[in-house]
Amino acid sequence: MPDIVTYKCPACGAPLEFNAGTQSWKCEYCASEFNEQQLQQAEPIEPEQAAPYDVREEEPENEEFNQNARAYSCPSCGAQIVTDDTTAATFCMFCHNPTILADRLSGSFKPTQLIPFRVQKEQAVESFLKWSKKPLVPKDFRSKAQLEKITGMYIPFWLFDCAVDQTLNAKATRVRSWRSGNTQYTETSHFAISREAEMEFVGVPADGSSKLDDQLMDLLEPYDYKDIKDFSMSYLSGYFAEKYDQDHNQVFPRIRNRVDQYGERRLRDTINGYSTVTVTNRSTQYQKADARYTLLPLFLLTYKYKNKDFLFAMNGQTGKVVGKLPLCIPKALAWFGSIAAAVFVILLIGGMFL
């Protein structure tokens, strides 16, 4: 049976949650706070054996749900916690007890590092309201029910450290013009250029979740790696967390593409003083490519409108926001109609005075 881990307050025994603002663990019941050293010195909590709930008996007709859903008993209130097969940390919807599914963070699924949250949920909500304050969004997009859905999550990432030998070949021209008497002369010189360098790239990221859009994850960068810490499950308390479903070999083509582009840009920047430069070919030989399984923080909100999914995401460390806003068609028609009416009135008044 799977192990469920919860972190309890050493003072009163209530659940502890990681506080991004103070970088400590706080008890919501007795208001006690503990730093990492104090938490480690406290009596360790043995994982509880969670009785699995047979989801297949409840929904025999839904094969996909049966294959991917898992349910466990909350160690605090006994309610059923239903997750999919990639969720590694969650909380009980009834008593809000933070729950970490330890078996999903073991073996090859155990991260080596993480970056803790620095942005609090209140800040994420404030940023969402500011970002979404547009006249043409649907009314319920900014509703209280929507705000409650903003979720702090740890997303699985692979950070690659790469050592490469890269070569680049290019054609360049240098144009010189001058006038002699009434004649204008132009001289174009052609050059073959070659560059070669040994380069190291540290911490090139690629998310390991097939559920999330890769382009969106790229837009949330950069993360500041100075905050990276050795992995401890205690940082997950109070947040959702996903384990990877794409391993380092599956995401490596994305890493290769990024390293190729970074390397070409750096070599291209060394070619100066020409009128035109055209890269003809490049090659990259990898001497080393080591991957570190790391969890990175973000806040996430999904919204379905007119059968389309819209998403708000925030970097949980830096506060950077990306997303796409829905457009309310009736509001848009009314807005453009009011503009057209105003323009018509102005033209009509102007015509009366002509």
Rank of each mutant, 00 (worst) to 15 (best):
E61P: 02
L16C: 08
V175C: 06
C77E: 04
A241M: 06
S73T: 12
K243Q: 11
E61M: 12
A291I: 09
T151C: 02
A42S: 15
R256P: 06
Y223P: 03
T6P: 05
V279P: 00
F344T: 15
E187S: 13
E61R: 10
K171E: 09
S194W: 00
A197G: 06
R266L: 15
D165R: 09
R256K: 15
W335N: 15
L219P: 01
N307M: 04
I193G: 03
D290F: 01
H190L: 07
R195Y: 02
K144E: 00
S275C: 09
S209T: 10
S180M: 13
L327N: 09
C162Q: 06
V204Y: 01
R266E: 14
G316H: 00
L147C: 05
P156C: 09
W158Q: 13
R142V: 03
R70E: 03
P2R: 15
T87M: 06
C95P: 01
I255W: 00
G316S: 08
D165T: 11
A341Y: 01
F191A: 13
E33Y: 05
V164H: 00
F353H: 06
A50I: 09
N249P: 01
C95E: 04
T280R: 00
E59C: 12
I115V: 14
Q80M: 10
D54C: 11
A291K: 04
D245V: 07
K134Y: 10
S73A: 13
T83W: 05
Q49D: 08
R118W: 03
Y185W: 12
G337F: 02
R118I: 05
P98A: 13
Q317R: 05
L267C: 08
E126P: 04
Q166V: 14
K130D: 11
G319W: 04
D3S: 14
Y244C: 13
C74Y: 01
F34P: 00
H96V: 04
A42W: 03
Q215L: 10
V277A: 07
S338N: 12
Y7C: 13
H96T: 00
N169E: 15
A11I: 02
D227M: 01
K226F: 05
Q38T: 08
N19P: 03
D230P: 07
Y286E: 08
P326R: 10
G152M: 04
F240W: 10
L333Q: 08
W335D: 15
A31V: 05
D247W: 11
A291G: 03
L327D: 11
G181E: 14
S338E: 08
A170P: 00
P10K: 15
L212E: 07
T83I: 14
S73E: 12
T278L: 13
N68M: 10
T87G: 02
E57F: 15
R195L: 12
Q285D: 11
A341R: 14
V5A: 03
R70A: 05
Y185T: 14
A241Y: 06
D103P: 03
L212H: 05
